[in-house]
């Protein structure tokens, strides 16, 4: 049930936010501070998600096979390789580390 709650409520909220943008008066969003904070919100959350997915198990900070995958992803992004290569490179590297151990 928890998963259905997440699927449905996330969908409703995200769709409502999109509709708000198209139907609400423009001046609601005109404040420069709101624009600046809003531009940084995805950067903050996505960065936090990078480390929480790569270095966290339950509520503990750990270093395991995922680190190798993330390092390869970072190198691929640095080399300006396309997204699918970034994700696949990380997966293959991490899987290799798991199998070697």
């Amino acid at each position: 049930m928890t998963k259905w709650l997440v699927v449905v409520v996330t969908g409703v909220i995200c769709l409502a936010l999109k509709l708000l943008g198209h139907f609400a008066p423009e001046r609601w969003f005109a404040h420069p501070r709101l624009q600046r904070v809003n531009a940084l919100v995805p950067i903050a959350l996505l960065s936090a998600l990078v480390v929480s997915e790569a270095f966290v198990t339950k509520t503990r900070v750990v270093l395991d096979h995922r680190v190798a995958g993330l390092a390869v992803a970072l190198a691929a992004l640095w080399a300006k390789l396309p997204f699918p290569v970034v994700v696949l490179g990380a997966a293959v590297t991490s899987a290799l580390v798991v199998h070697v151990h």
């Binding site: 990078v50 995922r66 994700v87």
Partner: peptide, 16 residues
């Protein structure tokens, strides 16, 4: 064993 747990943080890194 398929590296999917590392693909997720890589996806976030690619997004940011």
């Amino acid at each position: 064993s398929w590296g999917l747990d590392a693909a997720v943080p890589a996806a976030f890194l690619g997004l940011v």
